[in-house]
Simulated scan of single mutants.
Amino acid sequence: MAQKRVSHVLVCRELKPHLLMVIVQVGYTFLYFITEASFNHGMSPHVNARPKLTFALFMEIFVLSLLGVSVTLNMYFASLNYTNPTFVASMVNTIASLTFIIAVALGFEVLDLRNPRGIAKVIGTMISLAGVLIMTLYKGPVMRNLWHPLIHIPGKSAAINEDWLKGSILTVSSCVTWSVWYIMQKSIKR
């Protein structure tokens, strides 16, 4: 009985990539159905009218692509090299809060503390930032893995370069540029 169970586990482990691939294909099929239904209800797959490509618009698009993809993601991945993934993953949760704070500072968002929505935005921002602080600063008990890790990179633990100051600055800079990128998308000329 135990040998039969072990063989089922091995078969499932070997079939897992194939099953996941089938699930992805089913997802794509649903995407195609939804897209076709959208086209049948009047959505156009083509852009008919676009603004004239001026030098100013070209520079806005250039800065958006430089800031949003190149700079932000390069700082993000570089910060992983200097800190640990837990810190970086928790700091990425500040992007929504930072976007709100920067948008208020630049005047894109109006903060009305007499309105329940304004109060909810401020409370949500504070809760989000408090959660990130707790995730970053709390040192709980070490948790042991019950199973073998899914991905094992030989020699990685010895090769981690921990420079927390540099990594923290890169992580925060990445989150700030990500937030500014979101705000710039709102302000780009249409």
Rank of each mutant, 00 (worst) to 15 (best):
32 Y>T: 15
13 R>Q: 11
54 T>L: 04
12 C>M: 15
55 F>D: 06
24 V>F: 13
17 P>D: 07
42 G>E: 04
80 L>Y: 05
20 L>R: 10
55 F>G: 05
77 F>T: 08
19 L>E: 06
52 K>V: 13
83 T>D: 03
28 Y>T: 15
43 M>Q: 06
59 M>C: 07
64 L>N: 05
29 T>H: 11
19 L>W: 12
74 N>F: 12
67 L>G: 01
69 V>R: 04
45 P>Y: 02
31 L>A: 14
43 M>C: 02
77 F>M: 13
23 I>L: 14
51 P>H: 02
80 L>G: 00
84 N>M: 08
43 M>D: 11
78 A>N: 04
13 R>Y: 09
62 F>H: 09
57 L>E: 00
24 V>M: 15
78 A>D: 10
77 F>N: 11
29 T>P: 01
11 V>G: 00
57 L>W: 01
37 A>N: 06
44 S>T: 11
79 S>P: 03
60 E>L: 02
34 I>T: 12
13 R>E: 14
81 N>D: 12
51 P>K: 03
77 F>K: 06
54 T>P: 03
27 G>M: 05
85 P>K: 01
25 Q>P: 00
72 T>G: 03
24 V>P: 01
47 V>W: 05
19 L>H: 08
75 M>E: 07
13 R>T: 12
35 T>Y: 11
76 Y>G: 02
16 K>N: 12
54 T>I: 03
82 Y>M: 02
77 F>D: 09
21 M>F: 12
31 L>V: 14
23 I>Q: 13
54 T>E: 06
21 M>C: 12
31 L>Y: 10
23 I>T: 11
50 R>W: 11
57 L>T: 00
66 L>G: 05
77 F>I: 11
66 L>P: 02
21 M>A: 15
81 N>W: 04
52 K>A: 11
49 A>D: 10
66 L>F: 09
47 V>A: 07
18 H>C: 10
15 L>A: 13
46 H>L: 14
51 P>E: 06
31 L>E: 12
82 Y>E: 00
81 N>G: 06
63 V>F: 08
71 V>G: 05
16 K>L: 15
79 S>A: 12
61 I>E: 05
41 H>T: 14
19 L>Y: 11
82 Y>Q: 01
